[in-house]
């Protein structure tokens, strides 16, 4: 019997490609049930009083944007809809263009004023050191904001933040890996006793079950978490502004379903061929 290694793997590539292209072209979508961790994430933001200062850290790049950008978009909608004040930071150098474009699109929907309702502090290099610096003194970490290059104390929101993390109610990270949520937990969560939420890539999601619920109040895991969260945010966002995003995610999850079936089928067929071949030899 022929070995699986004799099989040209490009046939698998082709079937996989055709499957995904065909299903994406069909564009069907279906709602998903919401898991507890996502519900906790939503509830943690929802319960905060109006005007609370929330730090959002964008720790991702284009390679993980497929999973994290929908979560980030949903979170910004959720926070602004609930009239929270957002301090946006990045510990990944590739994140600032995403955050700038998201805020430029979403902030006007909620009449959010730059410097009062949200501020962008931009990228800070150094990974753990960056987080340690932010936790120790936000003013030392960012003497100026990044959008208009204004001094820290000239920005009303930053003045209200003060120097330490004391006035920040919640820290949310969109974490793609290192540095990310595990480093925020170590450098800021534990030291300054700040409530943490995270949106993570699928690869990092299993790690977070170890920290939930005591050191991490909730998390959005992978594209699944993003879809579930957007379903919840759709009810609070202004004028159905995330409906299109939600439907896009839902239709992607349906494609994902069939791709997973295909993967399981490949594992089963590969094993059947292997064991049949071994028996006959």
């Amino acid at each position: 019997m022929a070995s699986v290694h004799d099989f040209d793997r490009r046939w698998i590539f082709l079937i996989m490609g055709l499957l995904v292209v065909g299903l994406v072209a069909a564009g069907i979508s279906a709602p998903m049930p919401v898991s507890e961790y996502v519900d906790s994430y939503f509830a943690t933001i929802d319960k905060l009083p109006e005007g609370s200062i929330v730090m959002v850290s964008a720790d991702f790049d284009p390679a993980s944007a497929a999973e994290l950008l929908p979560m980030y978009t949903g979170t910004i909608h959720h926070l602004l809809a609930k009239k929270m004040r957002i301090v946006n930071v990045c510990t990944w150098p590739a994140a600032p263009p995403y955050t700038a474009s998201r805020f430029a699109e979403i902030a006007p929907m909620y009449d959010a004023v730059y410097g009062e309702d949200w501020v962008e502090l931009g990228f800070l290099p150094g990974d753990d050191v960056a987080m340690g610096t932010i936790g120790q003194s936000l003013r030392s970490a960012y003497p100026r904001e990044t959008k208009n290059n204004m001094a820290y104390d000239d920005v009303p929101l930053l003045r209200d933040c003060g120097d330490s993390m004391g006035n920040i109610e919640l820290l949310i990270t969109m974490s793609a890996g290192y540095p990310g949520i595990l480093e925020w937990i170590a450098q800021v969560g534990g030291r300054y006793e700040i409530e943490l939420l995270a949106g993570t890539t699928a690869v990092q999601t299993p790690d977070l079950f170890a920290f939930y619920p005591s050191q991490l109040s909730g998390f959005l895991g992978a594209a699944t978490g993003a879809t579930q969260y957007l379903q919840l945010v759709d009810d609070v966002a202004i004028d159905g502004s995330v409906t299109a995003d939600k439907e896009t995610q839902q239709s992607r999850m349906l494609v994902q379903t069939w791709a997973h079936y295909f993967m399981i089928l490949l594992i089963i067929v590969g094993n059947v061929i292997y064991f049949t071949g071994r028996k006959s030899s």
Binding site: V20, A65, A66, E67, A202, G221, R252, A259
Partner: peptide
């Protein structure tokens, strides 16, 4: 299992 989920999500986003 989660890695598969993540990698396929990237592919679907590219095609979309």
């Amino acid at each position: 299992g989660f890695t598969v989920l993540g990698r396929i999500a990237l592919l679907i986003e590219r095609v979309d």
